[in-house]
Design a binder for these strands. Structure first.
Lengths: 350, 350
DNA sequence: TTGTAAGCGTTATCAC
DNA sequence: GTGATAACGCTTACAA
């Protein structure tokens, strides 16, 4: 940078003003500094900048609360990530809001705007108030990322999560593979059609099934509102009503109820092929017990790591890497991670 | 650190000597500094340390050469990672060695020992000379990681890659799912039994198949030495000899030959279920063309990112995170990544 | 509109 | 054995 300044015939401070767009510099000087930067190939040293500022990144993650074990897992992962971040001087605060409550989310965003944060990550809800608050945060120069579920507009800096249509198609393909030409009937279970991710997964699955095999049909959709008891009840009824069902695809939560039903199935009856989402205690157990076949997991560990990486880049005003969608992992009984998938604080290398 | 020094009643320089084990400090002082560090909870600021040293990390990756398109992909990914690393002052050099040539690998390691590197990552080969050279590098304080394929000893600092037994079991489970109780006969194709990863995958697959269904049997193993022409020839013969074959599991490379055979299959004959490894141009095409069903990919992108992260930690003398095995991704026709899975230099957020 | 200089938390050099 | 202190590349008063 000293070289740049000298080569441009200005002082270090002026060069700095240009580099950081601080304004109050004569056009002529700006041009000269710019070309000096070009010529000398100067690149800003972020580490030094942060050092001099005594910078500590402050990020907030807003995660839905409730009994949902997937989000509980997300929260755990976030908590552990802090351990790893100490040396990086990154501070992460976890905020809880009621699930599916757009107003609460908007209110929380507004409150966070006052907290001098560097970035916010939230599980998106399509809602105009939420969108407005996201916009407001951006205005303040706070980076905003949607996590796991996106919002419709383009005002966020980015989305970190899976493509749920692709996820649904993948499930469809695996179901088709499990039938391999034989006829079958697939029962779809979701939380609610108004949840964007559920609807997209269903749509993807339906597409693939329709294209893959004329011998596969769909049973009437069950909406279980992600509640165990409700799923339990409706599923029992559906299975009793239609003995031709050969497979179940559960795109949402509330799977503890589903698994209970499977456990109660008469042992002499061949159980349906089952695919569901997110690896949590009960889905893991069901896989181990041969009650279900496949769990498609969106790997919150990776999502959070990626989100933190992006937030840092954005906070550093660095060019941000191109889109990178999370590829879900497909678990069967045989490739489950070790039961305590916890990152330890210090330890041996792998 | 100034606080530590003051609190211990010594100078900054002495405190520094203790922190960095530079020696030449009275026992008494050491103790006092240590306890001061403890009390004040001092943590070394790596960024500042690196700044003052003008540190640039230098890492070497040794990647097998040859026609193998998987390693070509690894090399591409590494090349691209450099782009993202500029601001971090990390320098990555890619070294090529003949594939499966232990002596060449050992020689290369020896040469690298003279290059004042901070770390080396290599695709392991089980060989005593290689092990000796790894040990020698460690003695010099150079971090050593095995990548994709491990070595037997424990002298390396870590292994980044998949667990191939688990990978094989996963393939086995998916094959079982594709048969769903119906009888079947699986034809295993590998490069060579002496390649550890191939052998382990085969072993895992066999285990799961044996446990999962009494109605599934194995056809005699084909060893194709990862060569397209050889795989082509042997596979044609095997399929002709045994019409009962319902599935193929290819654990190694040389899959272009395999795909050619599938293309030539008579259209009226139902093709076998096929699972193979690593997403490269021809496997991707085969998936899209419905010639095969599943590609299990070990995601070199993630492996390299993880490896670079570990190397940095090791070079910084920081505590290294606990083991984290790479979970392979299972691709079907429907969840393939965009064709140009290339990270652009600068760009929009996802 | 421009310039100077004191930090930020380290490492490394040199003198005692 | 120990202690000062000039870098490292940046930000940020403060002065001119």
């Amino acid at each position: 940078m000293s070289d740049v300044a000298r080569s441009a015939g200005v002082s270090y401070a002026t060069a700095d003003r240009v580099v950081n767009d601080r304004g109050g510099v004569a056009d002529k000087s700006v041009r000269r500094v710019r070309s000096a930067i070009e010529q000398l190939g100067y690149v800003r040293n972020v580490a030094a900048a942060n050092l001099s500022q005594g910078r500590t990144y402050r990020f907030a993650f807003i995660i839905p609360e409730g009994s949902n074990s997937f989000f509980a897992r997300v929260r755990t992962v976030l908590g552990e990530s802090r351990v790893r971040l100490i040396p990086e001087q990154i501070e992460v605060q976890i905020e809880g809001v009621a699930a599916f409550d757009a107003e609460a989310l908007a209110a929380r965003l507004r409150r966070l705007a006052a907290e001098s944060l560097d970035g916010v990550a939230l599980v998106g809800i399509d809602d105009s108030h939420v969108n407005a608050e996201i916009e407001a945060l951006q205005q303040q120069g706070i980076a905003v990322l949607t996590l796991i579920s996106d919002v419709i507009g383009e005002q966020r800096n980015g989305y970190v999560g899976v493509d749920n249509i692709v996820v649904g198609r993948t499930a469809g393909r695996l179901l088709a593979l499990a039938h391999r030409g034989r006829p079958g009937r697939i029962l779809p279970v979701i939380g609610s059609l108004s949840a964007r991710d559920h609807a997209e997964r269903l749509q993807g699955m339906t597409q693939t099934i329709a294209a893959a095999s004329p011998d596969l049909s769909l049973a009437p959709l069950i909406e279980g509102r992600d509640r165990h008891a409700l799923v339990d009840e409706k599923l029992r009824a559906a299975l009793a009503a239609d003995p031709a069902i050969t497979a179940i695809y559960s795109a949402g939560a509330g799977n503890a109820g589903l698994i209970r039903v499977l456990e109660d199935l008469p042992p002499d009856m061949p159980r349906p092929t089952v695919i569901l989402h997110e690896l949590v205690a009960h889905s893991r157990h069901a896989l181990e017990a041969d009650l279900i076949d496949i769990v498609i997991d969106q790997r919150p560990e990776d999502e959070i790591e990626l989100a933190l990486g992006y937030l840092r880049q954005l906070a550093d005003r660095r060019p941000v890497p191109a889109p990178e969608r999370i590829v879900p992992v497909i678990y069967v009984k045989d490739n489950l991670p070790p039961a305590n998938g916890v990152l330890s604080e210090k330890g041996e290398m792998p």
